[in-house]
């Protein structure tokens, strides 16, 4: 009997341990995780690991885990994360566990300044996060300083606006009282509904160059590809919606977008290395698949989920 391999998978709010076989595939491990977590909307998620060169990499589901260059540790380390984002949160996210995992991941992205968020929106989002954690505000329960140990706002907002910690807490407390009567799950959904409109929400950025060698950003998201100038990740200058794209491919560092209109010329940019183009293509294919799926009738499974969620 081959020696089992110890694996640790961290989700946004749990740590799971498994012993897998050397021939266990990525999908088999992924299925064990979603079964344990009770998640059925699996199409948004993936398992991310650090490869032997130190790069974050998504686990391929159709290959054995042992055949992928996972950094050698005992146990092997994986993060269970959302890899694709819905076009519209309230429309698409069905299960509460899905909404919670997205809420925790998006909140982390905002608080760590990975996703830019303006101050007033950050305060509003912070108050929904407080409602999601504490429930209704109560003078008896929530004594002064109840937010002191909470991570409420992105560091950039704290740095840019010279308010004291107490003043920030006061502002959030005012909003917290406003949310009275809102269920924790609804507060998470409100958080996501606001966050999804932030410019950088749900966008995968890649460093690219044009033929002239100018540094630019490529953004890949649920609706297509965008090009940004290097000093402004918020404002897309050129867009390629999935509906306008006939084909995408790459050849080493060169990436080619072919338009639906065959008379229009191909669009070419350059990534720093082949591995980046592989990741771009992977994200394009996954996002495009979900884009097409949303425009078809619900599968039986999704219909069942929606019915159960309603119950």
């Amino acid at each position: 009997m081959p020696k089992p391999v110890n694996v640790r998978v961290t989700t946004m709010d749990a740590e799971l341990e498994f012993a897998i076989q050397p021939n266990t595939t990525g999908k088999q491990l992924f299925d064990q995780v979603v079964k344990t977590v009770g998640l059925r909307e699996v199409w948004y998620f993936g398992l991310q690991y650090t490869d032997t060169k130190g790069f974050p990499t998504w686990l391929k589901l159709d290959k054995k885990v042992s055949a992928q260059e996972v950094r050698k540790e005992n146990p092997l380390q994986f993060k269970f994360r959302a890899k694709f984002f819905p076009e519209d949160v309230p429309e698409e996210l069905i299960q509460e566990i899905t909404q919670k995992l997205f809420f925790l991941q998006v909140k982390e992205g905002i608080l760590s300044d990975e996703v830019y968020c303006p101050p007033e929106t950050a305060v509003l989002l912070g108050s929904y996060a407080v409602q999601a954690k504490f429930g209704d505000y109560s003078k008896d329960v929530h004594k002064s300083g109840y937010l002191t140990t909470e991570r409420l706002l992105p560091q950039r907002v704290l740095d840019q606006h010279k308010l004291s910690r107490e003043q920030w807490e006061e502002r959030i407390e005012v909003w917290h009282t406003e949310h009275r009567g809102m269920l924790k799950e609804d507060a998470m959904l409100e958080y996501l509904k606001i966050a999804q409109d932030l410019e950088m929400y749900g966008i995968n950025y890649f460093d690219i160059k044009n033929k002239k060698g100018t540094d630019l950003w490529l953004g890949v998201d649920s609706l297509g590809l965008n090009i940004y100038e290097h000093d402004d990740k918020l404002t897309p200058k050129i867009g390629f919606p999935w509906s306008e794209i006939r084909n995408i491919s790459f050849n080493d560092k060169k990436f080619i977008i072919k338009p639906i209109d065959k008379k229009a010329p191909d669009f070419v940019f350059y990534a720093p290395r082949l591995r980046i183009n592989k990741r771009i293509l992977q994200l394009c294919m996954g996002n495009h698949e979900l884009y097409m799926r949303r425009r078809k009738p619900d599968t039986i499974e999704v219909q069942q989920m929606k019915a159960q969620a309603k119950e």
Binding site: L198, E199, T235, P236
Partner: peptide
């Protein structure tokens, strides 16, 4: 009002509509 401000950003997430030759022109001139 804060919610409206946040929602107003939704439009910023897509680039302006333009035909592909215009996209080419802008991209190569960056």
């Amino acid at each position: 009002e804060a919610k409206e401000k946040a929602r107003a950003k939704r439009a910023n997430k897509r680039a302006p509509q333009m035909d592909w030759s215009k996209k080419h022109e802008i991209f190569s001139n960056f």
